[in-house]
Computed example of a mutant assay.
Amino acid sequence: MRVEIWSDIACPWCYIGKARFEKGLAAFAHGDEVEVVHRSFELDPHRAKGETAPVIEMLAKKYGRTLDEARAMEEHVAATARAEGLGYRIEGRDHGNTFDVHRLLHLARVRGRQDALLDLAYRANFAEERSVFDPEVLVGLAVEAGLDADEARSVLADEGAYADEVRADEREAAELGANAVPFFVLDRRYGVSGGQPAEVFTRALEQAWEGRDGTPVDTGGAVGACEADDACEVPPRR
């Protein structure tokens, strides 16, 4: 059985959702028969490459909040992440265009190192003092994940490398009706939106396993905005 996860490295609920999904998968009796594939999605695709902004300021502007209100939003997410055993910094994080991260993740998938690179990128973005918007930081993360430095650097230097694959993932998510991430599709029959509790993922995996009859995917309705628990809003596509 295949599980596809649409997510963005800039989405804190995707970071949390991955950890919760893995706990749910560990409790699933057929977990060793599940293939997990990570798909690309950008929360801020219209931001210029190389243009970054502090996360607190970005949230305040996006949701029309004060800086204190935006910081409180982040504190809530941080507490949720820490309860899952994840590191989370509130101050000193930047937000930017994640297209290059997704392109590198596609290279990592080809080389069998996608999950390792995704974990490292999430940790760098949310828990460490490393900016995933710096190409050399990305190369360093790729090397830590087991990729070749020269190949990673070459992909990042060629803006067309794996660009079609990223856009194909994003088109497919739109066709499936995803309006929030993370978005999980189980065996192309069931959909789960948001970083749900681990037990929800376990039940969904059990349902998908037991009902393998080829019925169409049911997205179940996506969660709305990032300030609502468990999901980050997907912007309209241009």
Rank of each mutant, 00 (worst) to 15 (best):
residue 88 Y to W: 12
residue 207 Q to M: 06
residue 85 G to P: 06
residue 169 D to E: 04
residue 169 D to W: 01
residue 129 E to K: 12
residue 1 M to I: 13
residue 213 D to G: 03
residue 185 V to I: 01
residue 120 L to Y: 07
residue 233 E to Y: 09
residue 105 L to N: 06
residue 144 E to W: 14
residue 82 R to E: 14
residue 141 L to S: 15
residue 225 A to Y: 14
residue 112 G to T: 07
residue 155 V to D: 11
residue 116 A to T: 14
residue 99 F to K: 05
residue 177 G to N: 02
residue 222 A to F: 09
residue 212 R to I: 11
residue 46 H to S: 15
residue 170 E to H: 01
residue 41 F to M: 13
residue 119 D to F: 03
residue 50 G to A: 10
residue 73 M to D: 15
residue 115 D to G: 05
residue 26 A to G: 01
residue 185 V to S: 01
residue 103 R to V: 11
residue 219 T to S: 05
residue 133 F to R: 10
residue 225 A to K: 14
residue 216 P to C: 01
residue 43 L to W: 15
residue 55 V to E: 10
residue 214 G to H: 00
residue 152 A to M: 03
residue 116 A to Y: 05
residue 79 A to S: 11
residue 213 D to W: 01
residue 26 A to W: 03
residue 2 R to P: 09
residue 89 R to M: 09
residue 2 R to S: 08
residue 22 E to P: 10
residue 80 T to L: 13
residue 29 A to H: 13
residue 133 F to V: 00
residue 59 L to R: 10
residue 105 L to A: 11
residue 216 P to T: 04
residue 135 P to I: 01
residue 175 E to A: 09
residue 150 D to T: 05
residue 131 S to I: 07
residue 216 P to S: 05
residue 166 V to P: 08
residue 162 Y to W: 04
residue 104 L to W: 05
residue 121 A to L: 03
residue 59 L to D: 09
residue 159 E to Q: 08
residue 141 L to Y: 14
residue 67 L to D: 14
residue 204 A to G: 02
residue 98 T to P: 08
residue 154 S to N: 15
residue 184 F to W: 04
residue 149 A to D: 05
residue 114 Q to C: 09
residue 9 I to N: 05
residue 147 L to P: 01
residue 230 D to F: 03
residue 102 H to S: 11
residue 174 A to S: 00
residue 76 H to R: 15
residue 134 D to M: 08
residue 185 V to Y: 02
residue 138 L to G: 07
residue 81 A to C: 06
residue 185 V to D: 00
residue 117 L to A: 13
residue 230 D to M: 02
residue 44 D to T: 15
residue 25 L to I: 00
residue 157 A to D: 01
residue 48 A to N: 14
residue 119 D to R: 07
residue 79 A to M: 08
residue 222 A to H: 07
residue 189 R to K: 07
residue 133 F to D: 08
residue 63 Y to F: 14
residue 137 V to Y: 09
residue 233 E to L: 06
residue 225 A to R: 10
residue 134 D to C: 12
residue 150 D to M: 10
residue 33 E to H: 13
residue 158 D to Q: 06
residue 41 F to Q: 07
residue 87 G to I: 08
residue 135 P to W: 03
residue 234 V to E: 15
residue 158 D to M: 13
residue 37 V to H: 14
residue 163 A to W: 04
residue 90 I to H: 10
residue 25 L to E: 07
residue 197 P to R: 00
residue 149 A to L: 07
residue 115 D to Y: 03
residue 119 D to G: 07
residue 18 K to Y: 07
residue 194 G to Y: 04
residue 32 D to G: 10
residue 4 E to R: 12
residue 52 T to M: 09
residue 94 D to Y: 12
residue 225 A to W: 09
residue 16 I to V: 12
residue 198 A to C: 04
residue 17 G to S: 12
residue 62 K to N: 12
residue 167 R to T: 05
residue 37 V to A: 11
residue 54 P to K: 15
residue 216 P to F: 02
residue 68 D to H: 14
